[in-house]
Design a protein around this nucleic acid. Structure first.
Lengths: 205, 205, 205, 205
DNA sequence: CATGAATGAGGGTTCATTCAT
DNA sequence: GATGAATGAACCCTCATTCAT
């Protein structure tokens, strides 16, 4: 009994490990070559498996990217999950609000350079954009929530647009921050925050 | 004499028209599919010619993209060539400075939706990035020049960085502006300008 | 009347000159690149005409090679036409017989490097080999005739075979002779003659 | 252990067999059509595989020809490897020397009709000629060695030239020998030997 | 007749995917 | 489950040939 349960479980566990390894490899290859130029054979090789094995875990190249997107989404959610929780959001300084939102996001992007490398590319199958959507909309929702507290007079439609603008700014500057050498990263982040602040401050009056 | 001169001229004219048509088609196809997925046969078909004909005008797929880049560069230079000229740049209102820089650029991007579509993609051969570089650095230089006048106290290194940030913001938000439906474009542009102003204003003191 | 006759004649003359120029160009290009790699456009360009014009004179690439072969054949016939004539063939020294046959052939091949370059290649359409056949068989016939006089005891079938062998030797060594630098050509020809002599001498007894 | 070793070995064996089959097919197609006109798809089809499979074993069309050249070289080396060994080369009859050199070479060429067909063509990429060079120079070297013993008075430069001439004769006449119908082959070989003898004999005095 | 742009079949090669082992 | 050879459609590009001017 114990044996019978253990074996499948081990199998499953090994399978999940394999999938994870494949995704690691895929993240690397996608980051290096871009979605189009990355070959499934290259991903399989980077994962130390055969092309055939890759297809035992993923139905297609796109499915690999999808799964990678999902994993990124999950990781990201974890990364800044509780950042916004405090109810005293209204009381705190604007700069601190920005810090609390931006810092974990930057940390995540620095830790996962493959993320932007994959999703910044507009040359991916439609399905991929969909996979990236949840994370985008989660971020959007939270920024809107913050605006609702910090700029209560802003009419909802304007609020939605402003949130979009803020997210856009962030996403535009992230690649530069990630690509910057360690010692200049701090300065780049400061600029990013300046931009956000310059746009946010007038909304708060 | 007239005849002898006319014939080559006509030929040349026809050739240039064809090249232009091919570039139009290429802009469309590249915009739709991205550089990698765009096939030379598709471009030829979109231009209403045979694959072989395309190669009478362009040595390779990359050469087509190169030529397209060059054409964009030339068009863009024309589009906002004199926008910055006024020597009274120091006297004028910040909002007007922004208007004078942003408006022609937006107009160009709206008129040439393929531009961003092609150059936003990081999956292109090295040569292409080089083709896009002049326009980017021209823009950068002008923004720096403006900063030199409007924020003379800013140390040059900071000035360079600020210019980069401003250009980045612009380039990040342009796709949204271009993609927006006619009736909302104005509003999007307003937001873009707000962002730029929010970042610029503190630098001027 | 005079006019009516003159114009066509001039036309014809010009046409024949054009054809000749094309063949000159073709000989060069074929010699440089080989039959397969030579493009009709390259031949036309070398002849200073347009691709379309080439096809006004020759129905196809193969036809050009055919005509070139024919011209070579004619030239060659002229080159050593009377070399064998003397009835005193039986009296003369073997070495002189060889000289009288070999020298004009070598001279022709040196003067027309394109000849071997084109016909030494086995990658040509079947028709071309046919075009080269007459010259080959003419040469063969004359060598047989010589053998008939110099080695009258040789049974005809053996004679034919020997003739073939002699021609083969000659054709095998010609490219080397042609390719040799001026100052070594003489020595190469001497070797060629030695080989021929070594094979011929025993037949004469 | 046995199993673990057997599997890769089988794989390798199958791979080598496939490579060999492809080379067989290539030899045929190259022989029929020449290097240029031979298409990789035709080779693949002749080998009973798909175009893609061919490229699993050979990086390019040229690589196929290269490998074919290498195989020919190896086979040929084996074919007449020990033919020249005897130290009593000086004592033996000239005719027997010729027999011992010519017979295995002829046998090889009869057994591998594709060999000459491929290497006689001057229209191949530069790399191919290089692949054929070793065999040529090996033959050349051995002939020179023989001359050194049989015609010791010949000055080295003359010896080199004579060796070249002998090899040339052989290579020029081989195609005819190979192409000859079975029952006439013997006679052709006899002629070939006569030519060689006629050139060699005077050198020996 | 000349021109040279236009044609389009076909060549070498790649790669996502499948399948026999 | 794993392997990696096999597949074949599709890509970029060439070139012999045609045809409108």
């Amino acid at each position: 009994m114990t044996v019978e349960e253990t074996r499948p479980r081990r199998r499953q566990a090994r399978g999940e490990r394999r999938m994870s390894e494949i995704l690691d490899a895929a993240a690397e290859v996608f980051a290096d070559l871009g979605y189009e130029k990355a070959t499934t054979n290259a991903i399989a090789a980077a994962a130390g498996i055969s092309p055939g094995s890759l297809y035992q875990f993923f139905r297609s190249k796109e499915a690999v990217a999808q799964a990678l997107a999902d994993r990124f989404t999950a990781q990201m959610r974890g990364a800044h999950g509780e950042a916004f929780a405090p109810a005293d959001l209204a009381a705190v300084d604007l700069d601190e609000v920005i810090d609390r939102v931006v810092d974990p996001l930057v940390a995540f992007n620095v830790a996962n350079p493959g993320f932007k490398a994959l999703f910044a590319r507009p040359d991916m199958p439609a399905g991929l954009a969909a996979a990236a959507a949840p994370i985008q909309s989660a971020l959007l929702g939270r920024v809107e929530a913050i605006l609702a507290v910090r700029a209560p007079d802003l009419p909802p439609p304007d609020r939605a647009r402003s949130a979009r603008v803020l997210v856009q700014i962030f996403q535009a500057m992230t690649p530069v921050v990630v690509a910057a050498p360690e010692e200049e990263r701090e300065a780049e982040v400061r600029e990013l925050k300046k931009v956000l602040r310059g746009y946010l401050a007038p909304l708060e009056d």
